[in-house]
Simulated scan of single mutants.
Amino acid sequence: MRISTITMYEQSLNSLNRQQGEFLKIGQHISSGRRVVNPSDDPQAAALAVGIDQAKAVDQQYANARVSARNSLSQEESVLNSTSDFIVRARTLLVQAGNDTLGDVDRQAIGLELQGIYEGLLGQANSADGNGRFMFGGFQDDTPPFVQGADGKVSYVGDSGVKGQQVDSARLMPSVDNGQAIFKSADDADLFATLENLIGTLATPVASEADKANLQSVLATAGKALGKSFDNVLAVRASVGARLNELDVLDVVGGNRMLNYEQVLSDRLDLDYNKAISDYTLRQVGLQAAQKAFVDVQKLSLFNQL
Rank of each mutant, 00 (worst) to 15 (best):
N126F: 06
N81L: 14
Q44C: 02
H29T: 05
D142C: 05
F139W: 02
K224R: 03
D106E: 15
R70C: 15
Q54S: 12
E77K: 15
M8P: 02
L259F: 15
F303K: 12
D159E: 01
D104Y: 01
R171Q: 10
V162M: 03
P39K: 10
L226I: 00
F86A: 11
G116F: 08
R91K: 03
A290I: 02
D100E: 07
D100Q: 01
E113Y: 08
D190Y: 08
D231H: 03
K275N: 09
G21L: 04
Q60C: 06
L269W: 11
T143P: 11
D270I: 05
Q60V: 08
G130C: 03
A189C: 09
A290N: 00
D100C: 14
Q19A: 07
D42P: 06
Q61W: 15
E77S: 06
P205D: 06
S4V: 10
D211I: 07
Q54N: 05
Q166K: 13
Q11S: 13
N197V: 08
Q28S: 15
R257W: 13
T281Q: 06
K299F: 09
Q124I: 15
L250M: 11
A57M: 10
G223S: 01
M135S: 04
T101H: 15
A186S: 15
A276Y: 00
R243W: 05
Q284N: 09
K153E: 09
K184C: 14
V176A: 02
I3E: 15
S155H: 02
I199H: 00
